[in-house]
Amino acid sequence: TFDEQQGIAIAHQQVQVDYLLGSNLFVGDTLRGQQTGKNSPYLSAGSYSSHLIHFDPLGTSSGKETKQLIEFDSDIVAIILNGKKLNASDNIFGGTGANYETSTSRKWESNDFLTFTSSQSILVDRATVGRYWIDDARIITQSVS
């Protein structure tokens, strides 16, 4: 997990997400794979920070990670798991100088699970990848002034 851009001002409906706090994301929810569909919510106008969970076990044919608790300094407001939405938000939230995978293999698949354990933490229940796949999840938090 690494921090991406911090304190980025976003206009209303500039960034589409898979899960939005109070809409389809609540503390205690376990999220499986990616959300699809045209009715995915958008971030409201505001200032946000981004963090990327990236799983790519280089040099092996497959990998699995379980029970990893990740804590943040501010409240989680949205999560992006879908590869197309990750790619679309890279130019806004992506880390300076970071090179991101742009293929369809970049996403949280249906056999990957994470739990929104508290307003500031995520538990990666299970992340699994094969030789040509990576798991990325963008966690968007409220910007701390």
Score class of each variant (00 low, 15 high):
residue 83 G to P: 06
residue 118 S to A: 13
residue 124 V to H: 01
residue 122 I to L: 04
residue 77 V to A: 01
residue 102 T to D: 10
residue 86 L to S: 07
residue 34 Q to S: 15
residue 11 A to Q: 09
residue 107 K to R: 15
residue 40 S to L: 12
residue 26 F to K: 08
residue 137 A to Q: 01
residue 85 K to C: 00
residue 79 I to E: 06
residue 84 K to W: 04
residue 93 F to L: 09
residue 1 T to D: 11
residue 127 A to I: 00
residue 3 D to H: 12
residue 14 Q to C: 04
residue 110 S to F: 06
residue 50 S to C: 10
residue 106 R to G: 02
residue 41 P to T: 11
residue 45 A to W: 01
residue 52 L to Y: 04
residue 34 Q to W: 09
residue 39 N to A: 12
residue 135 D to G: 07
residue 60 T to K: 04
residue 84 K to R: 02
residue 22 G to L: 05
residue 128 T to R: 08
residue 128 T to A: 06
residue 68 Q to A: 11
residue 23 S to V: 15
residue 137 A to D: 00
residue 88 A to V: 04
residue 46 G to L: 09
residue 23 S to I: 10
residue 36 T to F: 06
residue 98 A to E: 10
residue 144 V to G: 13
residue 97 G to S: 13
residue 75 D to W: 03
residue 123 L to R: 05
residue 61 S to H: 02
residue 79 I to M: 13
residue 49 S to G: 15
residue 112 D to V: 04
residue 8 I to L: 12
residue 68 Q to P: 03
residue 27 V to I: 15
residue 30 T to E: 14
residue 107 K to V: 12
residue 107 K to E: 15
residue 77 V to F: 01
residue 16 Q to N: 07
residue 108 W to Y: 05
residue 115 T to P: 09
residue 90 D to Q: 02
residue 109 E to S: 09
residue 81 L to M: 12
residue 93 F to W: 10
residue 83 G to L: 02
residue 88 A to W: 02
residue 120 Q to E: 14
residue 37 G to K: 02
residue 58 L to E: 14
residue 109 E to W: 02
residue 106 R to W: 00
residue 7 G to T: 07
residue 87 N to C: 07
residue 116 F to S: 07
residue 33 G to A: 03
residue 75 D to K: 13
residue 136 D to R: 12
residue 143 S to D: 10
residue 60 T to D: 10
residue 112 D to A: 13
residue 104 T to K: 10
residue 7 G to Q: 10
residue 40 S to T: 11
residue 101 E to D: 13
residue 101 E to W: 00
residue 18 D to F: 00
residue 59 G to L: 08
residue 61 S to Q: 06
residue 76 I to M: 03
residue 126 R to E: 14
residue 41 P to N: 13
residue 121 S to M: 03
residue 65 E to F: 11
residue 72 F to C: 10
residue 19 Y to N: 12
residue 128 T to G: 00
residue 51 H to S: 08
residue 127 A to S: 15
residue 115 T to H: 06
